[in-house]
Simulated scan of single mutants.
Amino acid sequence: MANQVRVQEVLLRALEDLNADELKRFQWHLVQGVLDGYPPLPKAKLEGVSVQETVNQLMQVYDDKDAMRVAEITLKRMNQNQLARILTEALVKGFIQHRVELNKGDDILP
C-alpha cells in the first residue's frame, strides 16, 4: 500500500504539469488503450475528471509499474518528453521503492 501511495504521488506531480487540453488528450489516449494486452480505461470514468481522479483510475486498472509505464508511453506520444523522462527515471532507478523502503523525505521526484 505504501508503494502505491508513492506511485500515485509521482504520477500526480507529473500530470499536474499538463494544462486542461493536454490532460484531455492524455485521458483520450488512456481510453484508446496504450499498450497491447492491457485494457483501456473506461471512457465514462475519465470524462471531465480531475488530474487526481485520472491518477486514481490508472491505479485501479493497472498495478504500480504498469500505471507508470502507461503514463510514460502516453506522455511520449503527446511529446511531453520531459514529464515522460521523470517517470522513466523513477522506474529505472527504483526511486519509488527506494524511498518507501528508507522512509526518507517527501521529495519523491529525482
Rank of each mutant, 00 (worst) to 15 (best):
M68Q: 13
F26H: 04
K45V: 12
S50C: 04
G37V: 10
V49A: 03
Q80C: 12
A20V: 10
K65V: 15
K65W: 01
E47Y: 11
L18N: 07
R25A: 08
P42E: 15
D64I: 08
R69Y: 02
M59G: 02
F26K: 05
G37S: 10
A67L: 08
L12D: 05
E9D: 10
L41D: 08
D21F: 12
D17R: 13
D21R: 14
L58G: 02
E16N: 15
M68I: 13
V49G: 04
D36G: 00
L30N: 03
Q82R: 13
L30D: 03
I73N: 01
P40K: 10
L41C: 14
D17K: 10
S50R: 07
E16V: 11
V49E: 06
M59E: 03
V51G: 01
A20S: 11
I73L: 15
V70S: 08
T88N: 13
Y38R: 14
Q52R: 14
Q32E: 11
L83F: 02
N19L: 06
D36C: 03
G37P: 06
D17W: 02
K24G: 03
D36S: 08
D36A: 10
R85E: 12
V31M: 11
D66H: 15
Q52E: 11
L58M: 10
F26N: 05
E47M: 14
D64K: 10
W28P: 00
R69T: 13
Q32I: 00
D17S: 12
H29K: 07
V34Q: 02
R25C: 00
T74V: 14
V61H: 02
Q57Y: 04
L41R: 13
N79R: 14
M59N: 03
E22K: 15
F26L: 09
L58N: 11
R85N: 08
K43P: 05
L87E: 05
R77C: 00
G33P: 05
M78G: 15
N19T: 03
Q32A: 08
K24N: 05
I73T: 15
Q32T: 08
V51Q: 03
V49I: 13
L35E: 11
R85V: 01
Q27K: 08
Q57D: 05
G37M: 09
D63S: 11
G37F: 09
T74Y: 09
E9I: 07
E72M: 15
P40W: 03
Q82Y: 13
Q57W: 07
L41W: 12
L23A: 07
L18P: 04
H29L: 07
R6Y: 11
V61D: 01
Q52P: 00
L83V: 03
D21T: 09
L30E: 03
R25L: 14
L58V: 10
R6K: 04
P39Y: 02
D21H: 06
